[in-house]
């Protein structure tokens, strides 16, 4: 975990630097990015082949590629923040909760992004519609309507899923940045001071929250940080 919680400028920037400096967080980010990117690259073109296979890579167009990269980055950030928050709590450095809504929102974004690929052109919708005992004409019409929607609105659904995930990431970042601030870690070092000599100050954010006095004491007394204030991985 990072051994210092210096904030230079915006708390969000400090949180990003803190996460980027932590070895475990970097590993989580990289692993999630690769896994989600790989999975999306195969699953998105599923509607072309109706198979989960490497042959789907032959149908990756610029739109799918751009979405895959952006979605993987956003998902990696959301999950890294979740892990970071849990580790912060376990290390008793923050008394605030991790963002609760980020996990379900992220899962919803994944489902929404894959709906067009899996519901268009596959036998899933005809099978489900067939369970309702409709007449042949009604069955054909209903199937056509549902699958046509997913076939023609795929870009919209992908954009919506990405927006949902980005919103989830922004919300999580804000919550964690504020939580770190309220734990008394918004210290600004004077020139030449060591970390242990710094006096934590209250953040500018006027929203109420836990004082985190114990966490402040812990961070000031933490022996790990170097004199330059660089975080410990």
């Amino acid at each position: 975990m990072s051994g210092t919680h210096l904030v230079h400028g915006h708390p969000w920037a400090a949180l990003v630097r803190q996460v980027a400096a932590d070895r475990v967080d970097r590993a989580v980010f990289a692993a999630v990015f690769v896994a989600v990117g790989f999975g999306n690259s195969i699953l998105l073109p599923f509607d072309f082949t109706q198979r989960i296979s490497f042959a789907n890579w032959g149908y990756l167009d610029p739109r799918y590629l751009a979405f895959t990269v952006a979605f993987a980055l956003a998902m990696a950030w959301v999950l890294t923040l979740q892990v970071h928050a849990v580790r912060e709590v376990l290390a008793a450095r923050s008394s605030a909760d991790a963002p609760r809504r980020a996990g379900p929102l992220g899962a919803l974004a994944v489902v929404v992004s894959l709906l067009p690929s899996f519901l268009c052109c596959s036998p899933v919708v005809p099978t489900l519609v067939g369970l309702f005992g409709l007449s042949a004409a009604a069955r054909l019409r209903t199937t056509g309507t549902i699958t046509y929607f997913f076939a023609t609105k795929q870009s919209l659904l992908l954009a919506g899923a990405l927006a949902l995930l980005v919103a989830s990431g922004l919300w999580s970042t804000r919550k964690l940045a504020r939580a770190a601030c309220f734990a008394g870690v918004c210290s600004t070092p004077a020139k030449g001071d060591t970390v242990s000599a710094q006096v934590p100050r209250r953040c500018a954010d006027p929203s109420p929250g836990p004082q985190g006095g114990g966490a402040v004491g812990a961070s000031v007394a933490d022996p790990a940080p170097t004199a330059s204030g660089s975080p410990r991985s």
């Binding site: 979740q82 892990v83 928050a85 849990v86 709590v89 376990l90 008793a92 008394s95 909760d97 991790a98 609760r100 996990g103």
Partner: peptide, 13 residues
């Protein structure tokens, strides 16, 4: 409180 939150976070994960 810290232990309770840690348990809650583990459950969430």
């Amino acid at each position: 409180e810290a232990a309770r939150q840690a348990a809650a976070h583990r459950r969430r994960l």
